[in-house]
């Protein structure tokens, strides 16, 4: 079998999920957007995504392939894992943006500290210090912690709103600069998210 050919009947496979000629399941594509048949956009209609997810699940799930050839069973497992992984990423606006950033060559995993504005770091550091003081304090700080939580949550909402606008910008223009801005806002959001986790941990302790 050659690349681009159906493993079963050797007709051209053209990157489809199923061979057009013999209908056997092909090795799945690994790009989440392509897998779901979506354009590479940062804004996604989540209802449409869910519909596609259910439809593809019905076609690909291993439950549907127990009586098939081993090859198809393997592809079904593979394809369903990609489907589920992809659904988890694409339905989450933050993970989705990180996916696009990685795809566009932004090395998300190896960012240098200089990519973060110093004022933000200072702010986060101070917030962390204040939180640590609250938590280690002897007196009950529950009200202050709850106040901090709602403040952080409001910050996260604002970040999400800004992200939404930036997503629109990139979807419309496709310019790299708008992605740089997306990354900056994502970083900020990540810090806020961490603070919220910390407060919640303190509150549930």
């Amino acid at each position: 079998m050659q690349a681009g050919q159906c493993w079963q009947c050797e007709s051209p496979a053209e990157n489809n999920l199923f061979c057009k000629f013999c209908n056997s399941l092909q090795r799945p594509l690994t790009d989440y957007y392509a897998f779901f048949g979506l354009e590479h956009k940062l804004n996604i209609d989540n209802e449409d995504l869910q519909r596609r997810f259910y439809q593809l699940s019905k076609l690909l799930h291993p439950d549907r392939y127990t009586r098939r050839a081993q090859r198809e069973r393997d592809y079904s497992l593979e394809a369903t894992a990609i489907l589920n992984d992809g659904y988890r990423v694409l339905r989450d606006p933050v993970k989705r943006a990180e996916y696009i950033l990685a795809e566009q060559g932004f090395e998300v995993g190896e960012q240098r500290a200089k990519d973060v504005p110093p004022e933000l770091l200072e702010e986060v550091f101070e917030l962390n210090m204040a939180l640590e003081e609250l938590v280690s304090g002897a007196s009950s700080v529950r009200p202050q912690l709850e106040e901090a939580r709602s403040r952080f949550r409001a910050m996260r909402r604002e970040a999400d709103e800004r992200l939404g606008d930036l997503y629109k910008l990139w979807d419309a223009s496709g310019e790299r600069d708008s992605l740089v801005a997306v990354r900056g806002e994502l970083n900020r959001r990540k810090y806020i998210e961490n603070l919220i986790t910390e407060v919640e941990k303190a509150l549930s302790a």
Binding site: A113, V116, E122, N128, L186, N187, K190, Y191, N194
Partner: peptide
Amino acid sequence: GIVGAPECGDVMK
């Protein structure tokens, strides 16, 4: 020096 690692949300002084 205050620096941060955005991918995991760490901040270091």
